[in-house]
Computed example of a mutant assay.
Amino acid sequence: MQTREEIFATLRGALVELFELDAERVTLDANLYEDLEIDSIDAVDLIDHIKRQTGKKIAAEEFKAVRTVGDVVEAVLQVVNAPAQA
């Protein structure tokens, strides 16, 4: 997963699969909590799914600032493109 489009496509698939959402509801502007009805436990599941897909973990503190699907895409983009730490 490298580009925003690839990350969004993977994230949309994950949201549809994990939370049985209609793909049409999953847009970059969709609010995770209000539009998609994702709760805090679901958010933990989503973070875990992202970690399995990317091999990299998004810190829970970083995820607290996330509100929309687009925010998640940006957070994943930063994590996957971050330089490896020694």
Rank of each mutant, 00 (worst) to 15 (best):
1 M>H: 08
1 M>W: 09
1 M>A: 12
1 M>Y: 08
2 Q>D: 08
3 T>L: 09
4 R>K: 15
4 R>H: 14
5 E>L: 13
5 E>N: 15
7 I>L: 03
7 I>W: 01
7 I>Y: 01
8 F>M: 01
8 F>S: 00
8 F>Q: 00
9 A>T: 13
9 A>I: 05
18 L>G: 04
18 L>T: 03
18 L>M: 14
20 E>A: 13
20 E>N: 15
21 L>P: 02
22 D>R: 13
24 E>Q: 12
25 R>Y: 12
25 R>E: 08
25 R>W: 10
27 T>H: 02
27 T>I: 06
29 D>M: 05
29 D>K: 09
30 A>Q: 03
31 N>G: 12
32 L>H: 04
32 L>I: 09
32 L>W: 04
33 Y>L: 02
34 E>A: 14
34 E>M: 06
37 E>R: 14
38 I>N: 01
39 D>T: 10
39 D>G: 08
40 S>V: 05
41 I>H: 11
41 I>N: 14
42 D>G: 05
43 A>M: 14
43 A>T: 15
43 A>S: 14
44 V>A: 10
44 V>R: 05
44 V>G: 07
45 D>L: 09
46 L>G: 04
47 I>R: 07
47 I>Y: 05
49 H>Q: 04
49 H>F: 09
51 K>L: 10
51 K>T: 09
52 R>D: 14
52 R>I: 13
53 Q>N: 06
55 G>D: 06
56 K>I: 04
56 K>Y: 08
57 K>D: 09
57 K>Y: 13
57 K>F: 09
57 K>P: 06
58 I>T: 02
58 I>L: 08
60 A>E: 13
61 E>S: 11
62 E>V: 14
62 E>G: 10
63 F>P: 02
63 F>G: 05
65 A>N: 15
65 A>P: 06
67 R>S: 01
68 T>P: 07
69 V>F: 03
70 G>Y: 01
70 G>P: 02
71 D>T: 03
72 V>F: 00
73 V>I: 08
73 V>P: 00
74 E>F: 01
74 E>K: 02
76 V>P: 00
76 V>M: 00
76 V>S: 00
76 V>A: 00
77 L>C: 09
78 Q>E: 12
82 A>D: 05
83 P>D: 11
84 A>N: 04
84 A>Q: 10
85 Q>G: 11
85 Q>S: 10
85 Q>E: 09
86 A>C: 10
86 A>Q: 12
86 A>Y: 08
